[in-house]
């Protein structure tokens, strides 16, 4: 134990920084949600009584679900092709998936605005092709938000799915084929069930990340479609209603932690945050 003392000391800087400058501010948000404007559960009561709060939660959940479903579908197709590709091709595919992952959210939102707005490149292109008469409303509404959010989330969906797919023993697939199963049967009866843990992990990851999205919805939603994060900002910076903002923030954190808690019983979390990553 004495010998270990030096090693424990190594944890101190990170632990102190984290506690003083990360944990403390977050716990304070939790505290504010119970104490302001008056002590008690008043803020949480609004969850049941205030239609504005309910509308924001509804919008957020709807957009998050749609985003998660589309990201999973696209991510699964990508992961499937990557998993079955030759090692050389696989490297290129992975590069194509990983590069967008690290490009600034802000830059991407800006790029989407350039592409999707009324006089944007997509509308101009479609009009000059004669495909549409009037420009389509692709941005500053829910469609724009979903396009931008799915763009952000697809790489997150691909990684856990690909991880699960690569653990599948190819001999199992060959055996199924050899025993006379059609390609469809091999996929639905063998491949899909074996990759399901990855699919579940991806769903969880994507859903959790989308819940707290701020920048993409704020820019591509154009202030008309309010999601939770932007609503919280509005309460605190513009309306100075700390209690209400802190309440929704706390609900968000608790939801995420509960989802993770339930999920960690089903799938090994190390796969997500990884010894590897």
């Amino acid at each position: 134990m004495r010998r270990d003392l030096g090693w424990w000391a190594l944890l101190a800087p990170a632990f102190l920084l984290m506690t003083a400058f990360y944990l403390a501010p977050i716990l304070q948000v939790l505290a504010i949600s119970f104490t302001e404007p008056t002590p008690g559960l008043g803020n949480y009561e609004r969850l049941l009584t205030n239609p504005a709060v309910q509308r924001v939660i509804g919008t957020t959940l709807r957009i998050c679900l749609i985003t998660t479903l589309i990201s999973l579908a696209l991510g699964y197709a990508l992961a499937y092709v990557i998993a079955l590709a030759s090692p050389r091709a696989r490297r290129w595919w992975l590069l194509g998936v990983l590069v967008p992952l690290w490009i600034s959210v802000l830059v991407r939102a800006f790029a989407w605005v350039t592409l999707l707005r009324r006089q944007g490149l997509v509308n101009q292109g479609l009009q000059s092709l004669g495909a549409i008469e009037a420009p389509l409303a692709l941005v500053w509404n829910e469609t724009g938000i979903v396009i931008g959010m799915v763009h952000y989330m697809v790489p997150y969906a691909v990684l856990p799915i690909l991880g699960a797919m690569r653990e599948i023993d190819p001999r199992v697939l060959a055996a199924a084929r050899g025993l006379g199963a059609s390609r469809g049967t091999v996929f639905f009866r063998v491949f899909l069930p074996l990759s399901a843990p990855g699919l579940a992990a991806a769903a969880m990851l994507v859903f959790i990340v989308t819940l707290g999205f701020y920048i993409t919805p704020a820019i591509l939603g154009g202030g008309k479609t309010l999601m939770a994060a932007e609503w919280i900002k509005l309460q605190i910076l513009d309306l100075v209603r700390w209690g209400l903002g802190a309440m929704l923030a706390s609900v968000m954190v608790v939801t995420i932690l509960v989802l993770l808690g339930i999920f960690s019983r089903v799938v090994n979390l190390r796969r997500l945050f990884g010894a590897g990553a």
Binding site: K233, A249, V253, L257
Partner: peptide
């Protein structure tokens, strides 16, 4: 690992006050 899990909007409003 918490900062990867908790949305930055929550941390942001906490820090603003703190």
């Amino acid at each position: 690992l918490l900062p990867l899990i908790i949305p930055s909007i929550v941390y942001a409003i906490g820090l603003y006050r703190y």
